[in-house]
């Protein structure tokens, strides 16, 4: 089976006043239909920019490298997103084959237009349905995501809904066009834990029901452990570790992933002090050479970490780490 989305060697540079910034550096991953892939990393690691690339949503000062490919394969279309040139072509992808839900639902809904009108608007744009059909479908979707009294909520505005409700409405809106891939950019970060648990349950249910793929972006490894099938860990624009969730969380191979896991407050061990990763994520203007993590890494093995980008090593089956601990450079 062909993957739903296949990202190959994605490299993305931004032209800014201060110079050229490498936001995404040689990133490759793929998602199968019905699969949830988690993308984890600190702020500034390039998670959101990567996700936006899949829909060609980045700002005009973005430059994609020539060898970058984003291959989308569904029953209807098979194309390279980066090769689309006109707005019309891109709209097939945006909101059609791929939908996105954002972190802050209050900022993502227009405040002066009712929820329902916004839902109908995008359906009219992407489908051939009549206005009445669109309304019917929208209410059905609102009902499906667990919004009670959906037909009256349909006429309400974003400020009238609570945070959890708004995020549900956002999910309903994103799913109403029946996308093949859903990008969820920190969908639960702004929510309380109790509401977060509800939203996570809902998303799992919806994957089973619609058989779509999900790219789930978050900085919370606990959320990833509970939702995703596989996970990629990003740092400063590079994926440093990739594998099945179970393997990555139980036996992290990259020192950065190990650091992230150690920094998490654990409920079953309140005594031991928290272990932060030393230092801060460097500015993208001052990207370290060699392995991007070498400035904060506690396991630097030698000059090779500062001079050479580590190659991928399969540390266990289908579990890859990009670290010199596993390359032959150290021993040789």
């Amino acid at each position: 089976m062909k993957p739903l989305i296949d990202v190959q060697n994605l490299t993305l540079l931004f032209d800014t006043d201060e110079g050229r910034i490498t936001a995404v550096d040689d990133v490759s991953f793929s998602i199968m239909p019905g699969e949830i892939m988690g993308l984890v990393g600190e702020s500034g690691s390039g998670k959101s920019v990567t996700a936006k690339s899949l829909m060609y949503l980045n700002a005009p000062n973005a430059n994609y490298a020539d060898e970058s490919k984003i291959l989308l394969n569904t029953e209807d279309v098979s194309l390279d997103v980066l090769k689309l040139t006109t707005q019309k072509q891109r709209n097939v992808v945006r909101g059609g084959a791929i939908s996105m839900i954002f972190q802050e639902p209050m900022a993502s809904f227009a405040p002066a237009i009712s929820i329902g009108k916004q839902m109908v608007e995008q359906l009219l744009l992407h489908t051939d349905m009549s206005k009445a059909q669109c309304k019917e479908l929208s209410i059905e979707m609102l009902d499906r995501v667990g919004i009670s009294d959906a037909s009256s909520r349909f006429n309400q505005y974003a400020f009238e809904l609570s945070g959890g409700m708004r995020q549900r409405a956002m999910i309903a809106m994103a799913l109403s066009t029946k996308p093949k891939l859903l990008i969820a950019d920190e969908p639960t970060t702004a929510l309380d834990v109790t509401i977060q648990a509800q939203v996570i349950d809902l998303m799992r249910e919806l994957v089973d029901e619609f058989r779509m793929g999900i790219l789930f972006i978050t900085h919370d490894l606990g959320v990833i452990a509970q939702t995703a099938d596989k996970v990629a860990v990003m740092y400063l624009g590079r994926i440093v570790e990739q594998g099945l969730v179970r393997d990555v969380i139980r036996t992290p191979s990259h020192p950065y992933t190990q650091g992230l896991l150690a920094a998490l407050p654990k409920m079953d061990d309140l005594e031991s002090p928290l272990k932060p990763i030393p230092g801060d994520i460097p500015s993208p203007l001052e990207r370290p050479t060699g392995c991007v993590f070498n400035t904060r890494c506690g396991q630097v093995v030698g000059d090779v970490c500062r001079s050479k980008t580590p190659a991928w090593t399969e540390t266990s089956k289908d579990h890859f780490g990009a670290c010199h601990l596993y390359t032959n450079e150290v021993n040789g």
């Binding site: 600190e42 992230l260 920094a263 002090p273 272990k275 932060p276 801060d280």
Partner: peptide
């Protein structure tokens, strides 16, 4: 971020 959070808490 979690990696920084631990640092600030400490």
């Amino acid at each position: 971020d979690v990696s920084i959070q631990a640092d600030v808490l400490n």
